[in-house]
Design a binder for these strands. Sequence first.
DNA 1: AACGCTAACCTAGCGGCGCTAGATTGTCTA
DNA 2: TAGACAATCTAGCGCCGCTAGGTTAGCGTT
Lengths: 188, 188
Amino acid sequence: MTQRQRRVRDRSERGQRIVSAARELAEAEGWDAVTTRRLAALIEYSQPVLYSHFPGGKDAIMAAAALEGFAELAEVLASAREGGVAGVAGAYVAFAEAKPALYDAMFTLASDLPFAQDDTPPVLQEAFAGLYAVVEPVAGRQAPGTLTEVFWGALHGLITLDRGRRLSPENHAERLAVVVARFGARGD
Amino acid sequence: MTQRQRRVRDRSERGQRIVSAARELAEAEGWDAVTTRRLAALIEYSQPVLYSHFPGGKDAIMAAAALEGFAELAEVLASAREGGVAGVAGAYVAFAEAKPALYDAMFTLASDLPFAQDDTPPVLQEAFAGLYAVVEPVAGRQAPGTLTEVFWGALHGLITLDRGRRLSPENHAERLAVVVARFGARGD
DNA sequence: AACGCTAACCTAGCGGCGCTAGATTGTCTA
DNA sequence: TAGACAATCTAGCGCCGCTAGGTTAGCGTT
């Protein structure tokens, strides 16, 4: 039976290789360049193999990449917790800028694939918790969950607008400072 | 020569019909359903006619729709100016929710087609001015342009996160109120 | 040791996509 | 009325996501 176990392990490793190849290709050339044919060539298997790992096809592969992204984001935010609102905000923005394609997969694309199944997956809750942990102490009489959502939205909005070149490049750092100033101190 | 003028006018009207058909189809079935074949069928011409109007192809058609969207958004924001920060914020969100596909074309998709040509097109500046007009009076000693950008980012982020079902539906109105509270009053 | 079974895998192809070259039709001028 | 020119269409290219059906390889059984 050990051979069977090895086969299962190999299969799992190959599934991981698919997601990793998709992520690398997406960061290098954008998600439009991530086609099932190119992925199959990268892992040196034929196209249908992708569908035995991810029956949902390309969308499922992107969703798997997005899940990895949420786990990594949660880790980054947890590490920055001691830096308070400013530290977490900076870490969030840095994450989005370091892995833009992954960030797109998490938010812009694959809008509802892994999230509409059984409510919210744990990794997404953990990422949210990373923001909540620093917002809650300064929420005052405001509902901390709602305030965290708005804080999150402000960061996310600035990131996406900035990426689309809708904002002036020179104010980049100042904008982040404004967000921290408006959310890092008690509003009322 | 009047016949030639009529031909030019007919041509212009047909170009408008293309953009209108694209917008209607996008709102009804999403931008993925907007294909050059379906657009050609809707305007009752063959595919290549689209390219005589928009040499850039589908992207150019989406960009034209996005430009219309910015003009309409600027108008909406200008009308809401007397409502102050709260009025403009509400009008902005209402616009995005009323025409989600158009809003996507303006921000999420077609990232840099009409914006990287000669700096910023006028309609985009007008839309930004609609936000700036209500933020500037409450900016205090803060740079009003930067504050407007952050205000814009907060609204945009909440809209996109909400659409991807990343936020709790019941806090929808409260989140907007928080944004208005944090940006509608002098921060420092 | 040879068999048949099952799972893994690949080849080939479907319909549809954005886009375009070249033929065809229609319209105005001389 | 003949020719020039613009407008339009037919047909097809290469690519996409995805899948049906045939082929191969590894397994337990006799």
